[in-house]
């Protein structure tokens, strides 16, 4: 990220109320192309509401979102996908019984004309799938391998590769590492790094500070629906982030008995 670049998404003083519940109470974040922006927060901090607002699922109650310096008003998630904001949810939108290439192109199937009939261009789909997965460092047995046979980390990578292939400018990852083992987490973090280097803005939502520090350029902590500022890489330690997420006090009293290992 360089200082001359303009942010692709600017969110200022976003508030979101659900009836009497205030889920977001004034959140400000800006996202630049080619950076990995980590959004940290404990359970219930408002992370999910925040990304759903960013991806167009929720409309903010107050505040303004600028996308490419234009005010953003998406009617539904499809508009935001078309604009280049792709969200990879925890449940991934993958179908285990279908092959990797069928999943990869689900909803965006390539078409080849045979006379007057449009057919699914399997050769093209298979080739692109193998290429894209290879770029992400995953070697498939074949494009017809069922997604169900892939590990959790590989599935995340398929979902990320799919979003990138279909022109995402902003990639929102909702806790991509929360259910993964050490090795698979490393793979996903490596994938995030590759995506960032292609100039795509990555919004990485997590509650694991170590994962965030491994790839993040900037770190925003959400607590009780508010942002507690944005820190840049190198200016913040693991302990500071941990404290901000927990609100400062509760964890301090625990730390003695756990020996500072949390």
């Amino acid at each position: 990220m360089s200082e001359t670049q303009k942010p692709i998404i600017q969110m200022s003083n976003i508030e979101k109320h659900f009836g009497s519940v205030i889920a977001l109470a004034g959140v400000s974040v800006d996202i630049y192309p080619g950076e990995c922006h980590c959004l940290l927060g404990d359970n219930g901090a408002g992370k999910s509401t925040f990304i759903k607002t960013m991806s167009g699922v929720h409309k903010p109650t107050k505040g303004e979102i600028l996308f490419d310096e234009e005010p953003m008003h998406f009617a539904d998630p499809r508009d935001s996908i078309a604009a280049g904001i792709a969200t990879v949810y925890q449940d991934l939108a993958m179908i285990p019984l279908m092959s990797v290439s069928r999943n990869f192109f689900m909803g965006n199937e390539p078409i080849r004309k045979v006379g007057p009939i449009s057919v699914f261009d399997h050769d093209h789909a298979n080739k692109v799938t193998m290429d894209e997965m290879g770029k992400m460092g995953i070697n498939l047995r074949g494009p017809d391998q069922a997604v169900g046979t892939l590990s959790g980390g590989e599935r995340q990578t398929v979902a990320i590769a799919r979003a990138v292939h279909f022109g995402a400018k902003v990639l929102i990852l909702d806790e991509p590492t929360s259910a993964l083992g050490v090795r698979q987490t490393a793979n996903v973090l490596a994938t995030i790094d590759k995506v960032r280097k292609q100039g795509i803005a990555v919004v990485f939502i997590t509650h694991n500070v170590r994962h965030a520090l491994a790839v993040g350029d900037r770190f925003t902590v959400l607590n009780r629906g508010k942002t507690l500022g944005t820190a840049t890489r190198g200016n913040v330690t693991q302990e500071e982030l941990q404290d901000m997420m927990a609100g400062g006090q509760e964890l301090a009293s625990l730390e003695g008995s756990l020996g500072g290992t949390v």
Binding site: A93, M94, P96, M98, R102, M106, G107
Partner: peptide, 16 residues
């Protein structure tokens, strides 16, 4: 492909 997707996981298919 949509038929397979609709039956495999309707929610995932809607996401895409």
């Amino acid at each position: 492909n949509w038929i397979f997707a609709a039956g495999g996981d309707a929610q995932a298919a809607r996401y895409t």
